[in-house]
Design a protein around this nucleic acid. Structure first.
Lengths: 172, 172
DNA sequence: TCAGTGATGTCAGTAACTGACATGAACGAT
DNA sequence: ATCGTTCATGTCAGTTACTGACATCACTGA
């Protein structure tokens, strides 16, 4: 991250990273499948957080309610780390290859959420739709939350985005 | 595509492709930014089709109606090419790097649709939410449409997916 | 006929990634 | 205490995607 922020992702070679970490290039590739993965380290926890929250939602909760609950758990986790989130996103936004990988990660989370919903008895395609809609809301809200001029709470932004989604899709 | 189907994407080197096409490797890279782009050739048309359809929807149409109209245009285009769509998707599904690129392409379309919606006077975040929801529906419906056991029309599947989306998001 | 433009070839180089093998520290069993 | 195993790391050689620089040659319009 240091190096990526200093000189950008493309300008940083794996050799550079390895040197900074006091390791060899080969060892780097034993810890990360590729150069881009470095920045997506917390993925497992991130995904599990959503899955647990969906699984733990009240039985009575609708699919979207369960997903909404998960989004709020996520919001609470992120709230104290806005500065860090912004820096990280700046690195990602500066590089297409990283954006590509980010999409994969979000898709993986959506897929895991869909599985968790199916576990709750939700059928397809409702499970996938609810899961992917949830991640869409997350992305849109996250973007607003880290925007320069924003001072509002992540949870609040998520609520509004959810309301906007309901509004957009029910009006159709 | 021939080579990708024969031996798989990873097992096909750019040198192989160039040879088959009667060109040099260097020339290949003058036509495609990278090895993966080969399979996403029609992207510009694909995207434009959505944008035009959204722009051309009746003024009275809600954002989701406009997107739904675009999905139907897309369905009509794809309908006669189911076999081809399946082969292509098989290649993509067999390779993570291609799936990654596919997500980028779909995200680009969603982004273009959002812009077209804004052109129609739709505000954010409604525009992005409607656009991304639309692409979500497209993906889910497309997957069902090319499934082994499916014999139904793409348009019909899209309608059902749209209904399921409305149902899922309004029930929340 | 000639100057310019554009597509292609050639060649050398960088950097991501991989496989094979060697080394050495940690650690449990005897 | 020593031995054998396991695991993380180093070393090295190789492949392949991709890029920049320069040469060639067909085509085109003045």
């Amino acid at each position: 991250m240091e190096l990526y922020l200093e000189r950008g992702f493309e300008q940083t070679t794996v050799a550079d990273i390895a040197e900074r970490a006091g390791l060899t290039e080969r060892t780097f590739f034993r810890h990360f499948v590729d150069k881009r993965e470095v920045i997506f380290g917390g993925q497992a926890d991130f995904q599990q957080m959503f899955v647990d929250a969906v699984a733990g939602a009240p039985d009575a909760a609708s699919p979207l309610d369960a997903v909404a609950a998960a989004l709020h758990v996520a919001a609470a986790q992120f709230e104290p780390r806005r500065a860090w989130s912004r820096e990280r996103q700046r690195v990602i936004d500066a590089n297409p290859a990283l954006q590509e990988r980010e999409l994969v990660k979000l898709a993986a989370v959506a897929s895991a959420i869909a599985a968790a919903l199916r576990e709750r008895g939700v059928n397809e395609p409702a499970a996938s739709l609810a899961a992917q809609s949830g991640m869409t809301v997350f992305r849109v809200a996250f973007t607003q939350w880290i925007a320069d001029d924003n001072t509002r709470e992540f949870a609040k932004i998520i609520d509004e985005a959810l309301a906007a989604l309901t509004n957009v899709t029910s009006a159709g």
